[in-house]
Amino acid sequence: MRISMPLQYSGEPKAAVEQVVELEKAGLDTVWVAEAYGFDAPTLMGYIAARTETVNIGSAILPLYSRTPTLIAMTAAGLDDLSGGRAILGLGASGPQVIEGFHGVPYAKPLARTRDTIEICRKVWRREERLTHDGPVFRLPLPEGEGTGLGKPLKIINHPVRSEIPVFVASLGVKNVEMTAEIADGWLPHLFIPEKAQAVWGGALAAGKEKRDASLGGLEIAAGGLLAIGEGEETKKLLDFVRPMIALYVGGMGAKGKNFYNTVARRYGYEEAAEKIQDLYLAGRKDEAAAAVPDEFVELTNMVGPESYVRERVEAFRAAGVTSLNVIPVGGDPVALVEKVKGWAS
């Protein structure tokens, strides 16, 4: 397994990048840069490229609805050039609250839009012919009767460093995970419990892999959580830091019946807790929602405890097929933590 780290989308970005620079020396393989409704990801990714030498730089994620597929392709190709071939394109549909509320774009056909976007990006990077596409969401150039009628097929001007930039997809729903396993280079699951992954997603992953082009190779999986090594309750209390985040996703990322994370929590077997967390969160009782997150849910999505236990958690992620272990080092020297886990993962 490789070692990766998600860069938080809140807080002071320059300080976060300084940590990436130090962790690169410790063996960090990949940094994932999020984009929600704060600063954009590509600006920060370019800054990271300028400050680092070896770490891969991935978006996790670029929302599909905030950019055209060709702009996404151009952005990834530009970052790949500036970084010397270290870009990873992580894509996701986000959700209607952000897409319709912040971007003012209808949240329509997320699966078809994902497939169209990936196909268009790969055509742009390969630069084999002038770009045309006839998909369910995007048609390039615009067909007769749409626009001015003056559009024409074009090739990207620059020659990309790589004709195949890795594409990861953040997905949770059964159909979306199946599509991810079929067409993406990698998968970015969130709130991943390795012991429950097969029961929740095994069927969808298998169905997608049956249709997968052999040229893509095996499906990469990037997942993990909080990382802290230590004895006693003081270390275990660090897990309380993630309760509000889990409550936010399970309780607040969508309306009743429209929350993908809440559905995952239910499929994990936390139906009663998922209902309670959502009710409390939507009622504005966020602290109570965080307190209602099951201890097991918190425990199994992270790697916090004595060294022997943390090593068991690392192996659980490996056994579940994780190829890039996401770590958020806390409660100690981040460099030492990454170095230690890097040794185990290797």
Rank of each mutant, 00 (worst) to 15 (best):
T323I: 10
V314W: 01
G208Y: 01
I3F: 02
V20F: 01
G332S: 10
V310I: 01
N56P: 00
L71T: 07
G203W: 01
Y309A: 12
A214N: 13
L216I: 07
G151E: 13
L82Q: 11
L79V: 13
L205N: 10
V304Q: 07
Y281E: 00
D295I: 08
L71E: 14
N262P: 10
E144T: 15
I165Y: 08
V341Y: 02
V98L: 13
G11V: 07
I61L: 14
I99D: 06
I120V: 06
E164C: 11
F260E: 12
P160R: 01
G203K: 13
I328K: 06
A222G: 02
E296I: 12
L91T: 05
L23K: 10
G343F: 02
R130I: 08
L188D: 09
G145Q: 11
I183A: 06
V200G: 04
P136A: 15
P69C: 13
G58N: 09
A112K: 13
D213W: 02
K256R: 14
S10W: 12
E233S: 11
R318G: 00
W125H: 03
G331N: 02
A34T: 12
E195Y: 00
E299C: 06
K175R: 14
A320K: 03
A76L: 11
A49N: 07
V124Y: 04
L248Q: 08
A206C: 01
N302I: 04
S59V: 04
T70G: 06
M5P: 06
E24H: 05
G78N: 15
E299R: 15
W125R: 02
T70L: 07
V322K: 06
A181D: 06
T52W: 12
E100F: 00
A255F: 10
E24N: 12
P166N: 09
